[in-house]
Design a protein around this nucleic acid. Sequence first.
DNA 1: CGACCCTTTGAAAGGAATCAACTTATGTGG
DNA 2: CCACATAAGTTGATTCCTTTCAAAGGGTCG
Lengths: 244, 244
Amino acid sequence: MVVSVGIKQQEVLLDRLSFIQNLKQADIELLRGLSWDFQEFPAQHVFVEVGDRPTRSCLIIEGVTCRITDLQNGERQIHALHIPGDMPDLLSLHLKVMDHSLATVSHCRLAYVKHAQLQDLCERSPTLNVAFWRETLIDAALGRASNLRLGELSAKERLAHFVCEMRCRYEAAQITDGSTFFLPLTQEIIGEFLGLSTVSVNRCLQELRGDELLRSERGITTILNWSALVALGQFDPTYLHLND
Amino acid sequence: MVVSVGIKQQEVLLDRLSFIQNLKQADIELLRGLSWDFQEFPAQHVFVEVGDRPTRSCLIIEGVTCRITDLQNGERQIHALHIPGDMPDLLSLHLKVMDHSLATVSHCRLAYVKHAQLQDLCERSPTLNVAFWRETLIDAALGRASNLRLGELSAKERLAHFVCEMRCRYEAAQITDGSTFFLPLTQEIIGEFLGLSTVSVNRCLQELRGDELLRSERGITTILNWSALVALGQFDPTYLHLND
DNA sequence: CGACCCTTTGAAAGGAATCAACTTATGTGG
DNA sequence: CCACATAAGTTGATTCCTTTCAAAGGGTCG
């Protein structure tokens, strides 16, 4: 379903990219010249599948999506969670065959651009070329953070690290309300992301709440003790590359 | 220590890039025009540190390097292992501050190019721009494979998956001898990569040997039963993007 | 030949998974 | 607006895979 193209929605991308690069007027015009197709999906909807050869990439306007690999036993590993402003399949611009799937976690509004347009834009503007390339590099950096969590941290530490990351990303995307933000994730999803069982996620969450590090109900998450969370999760935001 | 610049060493890069793109003559000349600084390091040598702001990137000519994050307790997570033909810090071309360290695992010979040269080359040739971008995307895909191993696979499965990946990458880099290749890694390094203790790595390796899936001594690894290894590790080489 | 690093082995402890049930939300239709 | 159905969260008991601890064997190199 194609919905109306609102200027405000396009600005999501401008906000994101201007954050990291000094865009010249010409670049801004190139970005504004992109034509987007808007599409909405319900929660739990797979919108890109392994093996697909996408001809366009999407920008998340609203909602949360995840990058998934399915396993034989029906389990699945969530490699990454993406929030508004992210372009979860920007990589398909140069990796022709998808090596994973993308699915919505919550109800989502996505904006699609054709690869051809992006390629053209990258050839015209070295600045934008770098900006988009850089987006894929930061996406990869988030993957390294996942490695760290999965490989070295305990269940409780993983959860703390994860919350810290999300808080920073939400803040960067300017969708926080003070130290409160809305994470529309079930404990099952969090478990699939952190390599934990739902039961473990639940218990660790309760511990974090009991330790008064955070409050959370129905996805509405409030950080109560940031420094303690950071320490527990050994969280170092360098990998988010928000300031370089 | 800067050593002599051999033509053969430069070809490592050409081989790698021509594998994935149809290079035009002009591109090949641009690549040949790059000036490399060759440097050698002993094993266990950290050559890029967290927080560094590199002005050049390296290509591995010989040896194995690793991408590392150090933790408080002295443990470290190895995010990735790189082999000849890989450019482990190509990402520093656009991520100014390193969010991890790079270290040699075995004795290494590295070839360095200045970022300025690479940037210039990317502006001159859209093809090469894509080729290098794509290299960083594949690097990220390897990270997703790590996620999968760490998050969903048992110790034995992780090891199997890992061996499968290395075999494919070694083959692509043309440094195999039939089903035999040289992995200069201690069990400790493998453990740090797979999120396992040295003891577990050792026991799983013995199992794989006992099951006659592979043979290995002093890093010399021989695959005895490829399909069984692939099945055990649930290995799907799509993410290596060797054919697209 | 001894020092050192890597590998191997055994026994015990522990963190998280699993299984199963129960409670609390969310949502739909009568 | 309540009854029922479904999804999400919570709890307890048990099992199991890995880790940890500790020590012995084996290879390499000065």
